[in-house]
Computed example of a mutant assay.
Amino acid sequence: MEQNNAEAGCGNVDTACTNDAPGAPCRRRTGVRRAQTQSEFAETLRRARAVDPGLAHLLCLIRLLGLRPVEALRCVRELADWLVLLRIGVQYLRLPRGVGTSRPRRIEIIDPLREDTIRAIEAALEHCETHDGKLIAGADHKTQRNRLRALLQSARISGELSSQSLRHAYAVSLSNALMDAGASPEQARERVFASVGQGLRAHMFLDTYLREIGERSHEVPRAPGAAGTGSVREEPFDWGVILFTR
Rank of each mutant, 00 (worst) to 15 (best):
T101N: 15
L59H: 01
M204T: 14
Q144W: 00
E71A: 07
Q187H: 10
R77C: 11
P221K: 06
G66E: 01
A150S: 13
S162W: 11
A50G: 03
M179Q: 10
F205E: 04
R29L: 10
A223D: 07
E108V: 06
Q153H: 11
L45G: 03
H218Y: 10
P53H: 06
P224W: 04
E71K: 09
Q36C: 13
C75N: 01
S217H: 01
A16Y: 11
G199Y: 01
D52A: 13
R87E: 15
Y209S: 00
E78I: 03
R49S: 08
S165K: 02
P69H: 04
T15F: 11
T37F: 02
E215F: 08
H141G: 11
G197E: 02
R87F: 12
R156M: 14
A169R: 09
Y170L: 10
A8F: 12
F237G: 07
G197Q: 04
A227R: 07
V196P: 04
N19R: 15
Y209M: 01
N5A: 15
E43I: 03
V196C: 09
D140L: 06
P22S: 04
I242F: 14
L83P: 03
G159M: 06
R87C: 14
E108G: 10
E235T: 12
A177H: 01
P185E: 05
D52Y: 10
S175M: 13
G214E: 03
L45P: 03
Q144C: 02
H131F: 05
H218Q: 12
L148V: 02
A123D: 07
R211I: 01
Q164K: 11
N12L: 14
R211C: 05
G228F: 10
T44D: 00
R201I: 12
E129G: 10
V172R: 00
W82Q: 04
V232H: 05
V13H: 14
G89V: 05
L95D: 00
T18W: 05
C10A: 13
T37M: 01
S102Y: 13
L86K: 10
S217Y: 01
P104N: 14
P53G: 05
K134G: 05
L243M: 08
E78M: 07
I62M: 09
N12G: 08
P185N: 07
K134D: 07
D238H: 09
A50N: 10
P22M: 04
R74L: 06
G230M: 08
E108S: 14
E115F: 09
D52K: 05
S39N: 09
S39I: 12
P22Y: 01
R189A: 11
G9K: 06
L113T: 02
R94S: 15
S154K: 13
E186T: 14
V220A: 04
L148S: 02
R49N: 06
R191S: 00
L93S: 05
P53R: 12
A16G: 09
F237E: 06
L125S: 02
G199Q: 02
R74Y: 08
R77F: 11
D180K: 09
A177Y: 00
